[in-house]
C-alpha cells in the first residue's frame, strides 16, 4: 500500500510538472506580442520594446522558463501584468470561493447520485425512468445554462436567493450558504446525472454476481447484502467517474462564477485569458492541476481501501 501511494504521489508530481511546462511553452512560444497586448494597440514601438524588456520577454525562452520554474516551486508565480499584484496573493484570496462551490457541488452530487443510482438499481420501474430523465437533462443542459436558468428564475424572478455576490464563511455562515447554493446546484446537475447512471449500472452488475446469491443463501438480510456487500463492490467504478466529474466541476466553475458574479479562481482565469495575462493564467493553471492531482490522490487512497486486490498482493 505504501509503495502504491508513493508511486501515485510521484505520478501526480510528474503530471503537475509536465502540464505546467506544456502550458508555459504554449503561452510563450506561440509568437503573439505579449507586451503590445498589455499596453494596448495605441502604444509606440519604443514603448512596446521597453515593456518587453520590463517583463523580461526579451530573454531566451529557456531562461524565462527556468526563472519561472525556480520561483514557482517556491510558491511564487510572479506578478500580474495588469494589476501588478502578486499572483499567489490573488489565488489565496480567490481560492476559498471556488473551493466552496466546487466542494459543495461535489458533496451534493455524491449524496444524490448514490441515493438515486442505488434506488433505481434496486427498484427499477419509475425510479429508473426518473434517472434516465435526469441523465439526459444533466447531459444536455450545460452547467452555465443551468446557472443562467436558476439565476433568472429562483434569484431574479422569485428573489429567494441572491443572484450575485459571495459572502465569506467567516463573515456570515448563513450568508455564505445562501451565496453558494445556486452555484453548487447548477454545477452538480451534470455530475449527478453521470455518476448516478454509473452507480446504477455497477449496482445492477454486482447484484447479478454469484456471490450475492450465496450471501442470500446464508440467510443474510436483503438490507445487509445490499449495504455491506453490494455497495462496497459497486463503489470503485463509481469513484472513478466521480473523480472525472470533479475535473468537470472545476471547469464548470469558470463559467458559473461569471454568471453568479463570484470573485473566484474561475472568473479570474477567464479574465486573465481575455487579457493575455500570462503569469496569472499560469498561476491559475498550476493551481487547478494541483487541486486535480490532490483529488486523484484521495481517490486512489479510497480505491485502495475499497479494493483488496490493489492493497494486498
Amino acid at each position: 500500500m505504501v509503495t502504491f501511494l508513493v508511486r501515485r504521489v510521484l505520478a501526480g508530481l510528474v503530471l503537475l510538472y509536465v502540464l505546467a511546462t506544456a502550458a508555459f511553452a504554449m503561452m510563450s512560444l506561440t509568437g503573439t506580442d505579449a507586451a503590445r497586448n498589455v499596453i494596448g494597440t495605441m502604444a509606440t514601438q519604443e514603448q512596446v520594446t521597453a515593456k518587453t524588456r520590463e517583463l523580461g520577454l526579451d530573454r531566451p525562452w529557456l531562461t524565462q522558463y527556468g526563472d519561472w520554474l525556480s520561483h514557482a516551486v517556491r510558491g511564487d508565480f510572479g506578478t500580474s501584468w495588469f494589476t501588478g499584484e502578486p499572483v499567489t496573493d490573488t489565488l489565496l484570496v480567490k481560492a476559498p470561493v471556488s473551493l466552496s462551490i466546487v466542494v459543495a457541488g461535489l458533496l451534493l452530487a455524491t449524496v444524490l447520485s448514490v441515493a438515486l443510482g442505488v434506488a433505481a438499481a434496486v427498484r427499477r420501474g419509475s425510479l429508473d425512468r426518473l434517472l434516465q430523465l435526469t441523465a439526459i437533462v444533466g447531459y444536455a443542459v450545460p452547467s452555465f445554462l443551468m446557472a443562467l436558468l436558476l439565476s433568472a428564475t429562483v434569484a431574479v424572478q422569485l428573489g429567494w436567493l441572491p443572484a450575485t455576490g459571495y459572502v465569506p464563511f467567516t463573515t456570515s455562515a448563513s450568508g455564505w450558504l445562501q451565496s453558494i447554493t445556486l452555484p453548487a446546484i447548477s454545477l452538480s446537475v451534470g455530475a449527478i446525472a453521470a455518476t448516478a447512471q454509473q452507480i446504477r449500472g455497477s449496482v445492477i452488475d454486482v447484484l447479478r454476481q454469484d456471490f450475492v446469491r450465496t450471501l442470500r443463501s446464508r440467510g443474510l438480510s436483503e438490507r445487509r447484502v445490499l449495504f455491506r456487500h453490494v455497495l462496497r463492490n459497486a463503489a470503485p467504478p463509481a469513484l472513478t467517474v466521480l473523480s472525472l466529474q470533479f475535473i468537470g466541476l472545476v471547469g464548470g466553475a469558470v463559467v458559473t462564477e461569471k454568471v453568479f458574479g463570484l470573485p473566484g479562481v474561475g472568473s479570474t482565469a477567464a479574465e486573465a485569458t481575455v487579457n493575455g495575462d500570462t503569469p496569472l493564467v499560469m498561476g491559475v493553471a498550476v493551481y487547478l492541476v494541483f487541486i486535480v492531482v490532490v483529488v486523484n490522490l484521495l481517490v486512489d487512497v479510497a480505491y485502495g481501501w475499497l479494493n483488496p486486490k490493489v492493497r494486498v498482493r
Binding site: 502540464l19 502550458a23 485569458t273 493564467v281 491559475v284
Partner: peptide
C-alpha cells in the same frame, strides 16, 4: 492518462490565451 487528468477548461484557456480567440 496525462491528458485525461488535465482539467479540460484549463487546457482550453491556456490555448486560447496563447493563440487568441
Amino acid at each position: 492518462s496525462l491528458v485525461m487528468a488535465a482539467p479540460a477548461i484549463m487546457v482550453l484557456l491556456v490555448a486560447i490565451a496563447a493563440i487568441g480567440p
